[in-house]
């Protein structure tokens, strides 16, 4: 039990992941979907940072008397991932704006109806 609780970071990761995915699935609002996606990505950031941690280690900066350091690489990688995430969010939001201009709504159901009508029209 304690072992499972000891991995609480992972539980948080999984919780965030599920929340993100659930948001994407449950909502028809495009902006909320983007937010869900962001949460989903954030869970991964946490996952990486967590796995880089070493018990009793310090930040990977040379300090006298410290033998163990956390693995710096995951954190570094996550910097890239954050950039990617931001870019993605930017593109997604830009698209949402364009969709709003084109369809007059950002609700997926309504957009779908409009597209359906367009398809029938040819």
């Amino acid at each position: 039990m304690s072992e499972a609780l000891g991995l609480y970071n992972y539980w948080i990761v999984i919780f965030l992941m599920m929340t993100g995915l659930y948001l994407v699935i449950s909502t028809g609002n495009l902006v909320r979907k983007v937010v869900g996606l962001n949460i989903f990505q954030a869970s991964v950031l946490l996952l990486y940072v967590t796995m880089g941690r070493v018990d009793g280690a310090t930040a990977p900066i040379f300090v006298e008397g410290r033998e163990t350091y956390t693995d710096p690489l995951p954190s570094v990688l996550m910097l890239t991932a954050i950039v990617v995430g931001v870019a993605t969010t930017a593109v997604a939001l830009a698209l949402t704006v364009r969709i709003n201009e084109a369809y007059g709504t950002i609700e997926e159901d309504e957009i779908n109806e409009q597209e359906h009508a367009q398809e029938l029209a040819g």
């Binding site: 979907k33 996606l37 997604a92 698209l95 969709i99």
Partner: peptide, 16 residues
């Protein structure tokens, strides 16, 4: 205009 929704869909799924 469906290119936009198609892109959005691609974006969501691609990102996932």
């Amino acid at each position: 205009r469906r290119a936009l929704t198609a892109t959005f869909r691609y974006l969501i799924l691609g990102t996932v």
